[in-house]
Amino acid sequence: MSLPPFTVIGGYLGAGKTTLVNHLLTAAHGLRIAVLVNDFGEVNVDAALIASHDGDTMSLANGCMCCSLTNGFAQAINAVLERKTQMDAIVIEASGVAEPGRIAQYGQMYDLPLDGVITVVDAERIRDQVENKYVGEVVKHQLLQADIILLNKSDCVAAETLGDVRGWLASAAPRIPVLETARSNAPLDILIGRGGSQQATPDVPLRFTTTTNHEFLHQTWVIRRNTPIKRAAISRLAKQMGSRIFRAKGFINLAEDPERRYLLQQVGQRWVIEEAGLWVSGAARTEIVCIGPRNG
């Protein structure tokens, strides 16, 4: 049985993690997303959407679910994995002082493929938070452990301040792609990579659903090659894309093994290339879909 990919949402108290969780649970994305949260009380789901609620687990009519971490990560994850319907993705909302990189290891206890670490940042308060004598170090680690940083509440600060914070982030968290958001309104395709390696079968469509979107400051583009590419060249490409993309995904026509398809999945600066079955005859070509900042 394949296991759903695992996404960690980190960031300090008040950055907008719970708002993000509410989006994930209720947006019309058609995915069954399980979200593990620390504080059930803060999750704000319309009562009409709730199919059942048994104290520590809330099931929604749209197939999503939300589990409380009150009794520990293991209990919550068991509640998700033991369900009859397989979930498409598992998202954990880390506590405000947790290091998301450590939380990411939790998923590996259960062999869940790590889909990404998203750190949400409060554009107004981040500079103060990193100076705080109690939590400053943790907040810095939260930035450095991110695959993608959501610079949230960007609508709450003046353009000049936003520019300053962006400039500061570029040195405080170098090479980590930053997406500006207001009310945590990040597109799902950036948040969740849709399917770990185990789900990569020829039937799964590979397209990101969003294209260039003027409301958001991101765009998608496709890299195509008809000739086989060497593994080293792919690694170079992925490394170069690094801070310029949020995610990239696509099949590779690998020069070293032209009979088989290879799947590249990249989030920020982290990528994996895995074997994904044989090419359908004549279809072998590299096609990588990228999603990144508009000026990326």
Binding site: Y12, L13, G14, S95, G96, V97, E99, N132, Y134, V135, E137, V138
Partner: peptide, 9 residues
């Protein structure tokens, strides 16, 4: 070490 909860909380 690290705090268990944010001081604001």
């Amino acid at each position: 070490g690290q705090p268990l909860f944010p001081p604001e909380l």
